[in-house]
Amino acid sequence: MTSQTTTAAPGVAALEVRGVTKRYGDRAAVDDLSFTCQPGSVTGFLGPNGAGKSTTLRILTGLAKADAGQALVGGAEYRSLSHPARSIGVMLDAGALHRGRTGLETLRLAARTSGMPAARADEVLETVGLAHAGAKRVGGYSYGMRQRLGIGVALIGDPAVLVLDEPANGLDPEGIRWMRRLLRSFADAGGTVLLSSHQLREVQATVDRMIVIAGGRLVREGTLDELTTEGGTRVSALDLKMLRTALDAHGIAYEQRSEQELEVSLAPEDMGRLALREQIVLTALGATDHGGLEEVFFSLTGQSESEQPSPVHAGSGDDESTVPVGVGGS
């Protein structure tokens, strides 16, 4: 990303999906889905097969039309962008690159389409580690090389936003590491990344925030820490009885974990504030570890088949289980 990059106007989300619904016959592939992605963050877009991730990304990039709602890039619909590659780089399917064209020509054509100089193609080819294969036709590329070229096409217009669907597929460990660094540095430079993936470990290592969908609906949204630690905070106090009295007075649920420790249904920072207000001396405070992302993912999305998940919108403040929206740093 450079200073030439087109960025969203101040106060406008880099990506915004607002009440999007898409139906195929009687089945809702996406059902009243809303979320935003802010600059400077890598957002993971997670969900089981058929959850509606690809449909959402296709709607966001103008390849499909929503039945209701809006999907906006910097406040505008994708189809209204005159040079979309200058604002948003997209890689949905590396297999969609023409197999009969060389890697370098693919990038040169993309550069010309987006109004970038031809030299940008050589630069990007170097960035994605394909300088040695520029003259080779895409049909002769391995899947991992095609993924790299697809990411190169997404980067060609020097955009401020990246939308990538399963970018780690086919990449070797070195390639995955390269991609992780690329996305991190892109976000650290103020860019916005929306990354759809099935590879939970990859997501865990790359993203700041996550959006989890199932059955076309949002089931959880928040930072990685919020999702993996949600459900409580471990807390110990010098005077445990005083702590219990304070929690009871505020109607906050808790469980006795050990003689000296409670698990309360508050975020650690809220527990800290409460203790300060009630002048309780805490001796230990920390988020409860409920396991990794995998456990959280299955617990969140596993309900989708047996029962419809009730959508929980972040930051509503009405539900104690609601996860507040926040752009976490990593």
């Binding site: 103008g62 994708y78 979309p84 590659a85 399917d93």
Partner: peptide
């Protein structure tokens, strides 16, 4: 041709009109 080989996706991503 681009519909058959799937490359129309990239064309429309770069030229949405």
């Amino acid at each position: 041709g681009e519909w058959s080989d799937g490359s129309i996706q990239n064309t429309f991503l770069q030229r949405p009109g």
